[in-house]
């Protein structure tokens, strides 16, 4: 994917040298500039309005069709459930679109030389960009959620603040993870075309490949191809013990590495949404009452943290070593 030439042998630019250090002031200055750059465009307001419309739209639909749900007092639950189904798909798209040109675009137009003519390190630039772009997505989420809160409260006649803020917080973490992926990939090339292709690749990876993985694994397990196999477990259904089969533990680990999956599981922890918790309980039976640690809700935070830290860390390491 990379079109760069690795820098030559040179005189050895170790990561401990002052030039490649991280300076908080520099990171802040770049993040601020990057945010200003984005806020000036329609993108920021467009996103805020989008999130507003999304929340109001879901709430409106719920209050129109969902009188039964409302009677049970579960409307915020439903709002979180339905909204998260949409944001799970949309937030990655937004983050990838916001981030794809972050570095590649500046290298293509040469404006990265403006940044790096000033006393910033390349690491400062990457982190500043990640912060700036994350801020655009996060602040527009906050603005959209805040504006919608009033309407949601009016339509639903009061709502669960914990669930609502939980969804917002989880969405921000999820957005930062995808922004990290986008900015990191953008730093690997000086062609925005290649960077764009990489973004499509990421989306396809998690939404087509990962979704197909479960079926693929099931197929392989049923036929016991290679090292794939099934595990038999029993669960209670209407007071009767039923035997069923599931995939091996490690397969579930792989399926759960998807940031979208982690987003969903994380939501069940930060919100009290019954509908999401119900799914989780069903899973517990498959593992004899207790989920392996990597399927527990807290682990999904680690997965999202992984997707925030690892892509940008790889980019920080590599971007220091290339010719611009």
């Amino acid at each position: 994917m990379s079109t760069d030439t690795e820098a030559g042998t040179g005189t050895g630019s170790g990561t401990t040298t002052p030039s490649s250090s991280i300076n908080v002031e520099s990171v802040r200055a770049i993040a601020k500039k990057d945010f200003q750059d984005a806020v000036r465009s329609w993108v920021f307001w467009g996103l805020s309005i989008f999130f507003f419309v999304l929340l109001v739209g879901v709430t409106g639909t719920l209050s129109y069709f969902g009188e039964d749900i409302a009677a049970e007092g579960a409307t915020t639950d439903m709002l979180v459930l339905f909204t998260s189904e949409i944001t799970r798909l949309v937030i990655p798209l937004i983050a990838l679109v916001l981030g794809w040109k972050a570095i590649a675009g500046e290298r293509e137009t040469g404006s990265i030389k403006i940044l790096l003519s000033l006393p910033h390190s390349r690491k400062d630039v990457l982190l500043g960009k990640l912060l700036g772009r994350s801020a655009v997505l996060s602040v527009s989420l906050v603005v959209g959620f805040a504006l919608a809160a009033v309407v949601v409260a009016a339509l639903l006649g009061g709502f669960d603040v914990v669930d609502y803020v939980g969804l917002l917080a989880m969405s921000i973490v999820y957005g930062v993870a995808y922004t990290s992926i986008a900015v990191a990939l953008s730093s690997l090339t000086r062609s925005t075309t290649i960077a764009g292709a990489a973004m499509v690749g990421v989306f396809v990876l998690f939404y087509v490949v990962w979704n197909a993985l479960q079926q693929a694994f099931e197929l392989l397990a049923q036929r016991e191809i290679l090292f794939f196999d099934t595990v038999t477990y029993t669960f209670e259904l209407d007071g009767q013990e039923v035997q069923s089969e599931r995939l091996q533990d490690w397969v579930y680990f792989i399926l759960n590495v998807d940031p979208g999956e982690a987003y969903n599981r994380g939501l069940s922890l930060v919100t009290n949404t019954d509908a999401i918790e119900a799914q989780v309980q069903l899973n517990e039976q498959m593992f004899g009452g207790e989920l392996p640690f990597f399927l527990q809700d807290w682990f999904s935070f680690l997965i999202l943290l992984f997707w925030i830290v690892v892509p940008i860390a790889v980019a920080l390491w590599r971007f220091d070593r290339v010719d611009l």
Binding site: Q36, R40, S111, I114, L116, S117
Partner: peptide
């Protein structure tokens, strides 16, 4: 050293790079 002390060098250097586009959405003041 231009490689290991680049940040210090650039703190004392003013650069007009070539073939570079400025940031479209920022004003001269910004």
């Amino acid at each position: 050293d231009a490689q290991t002390h680049s940040r210090e060098i650039r703190a004392q250097t003013g650069v007009l790079p070539e073939g570079v586009e400025t940031y479209d959405r920022l004003t001269a003041r910004q």
